[in-house]
């Protein structure tokens, strides 16, 4: 990327798109980074409350979702390898699996949040308003950070869905796969963030 090759086709520069995606990933890292700063400050100030509050979260649920995201990362990675090898069928299959895994993740989240809501624990509820300070901060951060992460899952699904459509149409293929590659990068980012969210919320000791 530091060599300036000149292109006849000005409108297509795969390296530029990839670089652009990486730069965008940096901003996403710092977006979540801001929240991780808030998290670490409040955990530092309320160690006991955070410890007790985290016991409300189900470790098996978090573990399953972690594994789901890891597998989906692998399937996306495989789809990118296979499109370059020209194996369109495998690419499509892998993308479908990825989307299904993502959906499962969201469904799990739905039940997880739903259980909390049933106990009257949701932003703005009376229960939440009467929590002690440390608990309040923990659950505010929990809902906000996992919520924003879920939004990123949805954006990632849209990107992968578009890629899947274009693979099927033959618009993304073995010599033109930047879209899929970049959507994949984005998907790995979503996984990357979850890798930190999981221990920070579910595994506090």
């Amino acid at each position: 990327m530091e060599t300036t090759t000149h292109h006849e086709d000005l409108h297509r520069d795969d390296t530029a798109s990839k670089l652009g995606m990486w730069l965008f990933i940096f901003t996403e890292i710092l977006l979540f980074g801001g929240m991780f700063i808030v998290y670490s400050v409040y955990r530092y100030k309320n160690p006991v409350a955070f410890h007790i509050a985290h016991e409300e979260l189900s470790i098996p649920m978090g573990f399953i979702n972690t594994v789901i995201l890891l597998i989906s990362s692998a399937t996306v990675a495989i789809s990118i390898s296979s499109i370059q090898k020209g194996d369109r069928k495998l690419t499509i299959r892998m993308l479908v699996v990825t989307l299904l895994l993502a959906l499962t993740f969201l469904i799990n989240k739905y039940f997880e949040w739903g259980a909390k809501f049933e106990h009257g624990m949701y932003p703005g509820s009376d229960l939440m308003a009467n929590l002690s300070h440390g608990d309040m901060l923990f659950f505010s951060l929990y809902f906000f950070m996992t919520g924003l992460h879920a939004v990123h899952i949805i954006v990632g699904m849209i990107l992968l869905g578009v890629s899947l459509y274009k693979v099927q149409k033959g618009l993304v293929h073995s010599t033109r796969f930047a879209l899929l590659e970049n959507s994949g990068l984005y998907w790995h980012l979503v996984d990357l963030i979850w890798i930190f969210l999981f221990p920070l919320f579910y595994l506090i000791h």
Partner: peptide, 25 residues
């Protein structure tokens, strides 16, 4: 622009959430 702006972006979102959802930051 890339590395600093997102930090204030998320901070502003937190202010919005705190005002509208009644959660604490």
């Amino acid at each position: 622009q890339l590395l600093a702006t997102p930090v204030v972006g998320i901070t502003f979102l937190m202010v919005v959430a705190e005002r509208t959802l009644g959660i604490g930051f």
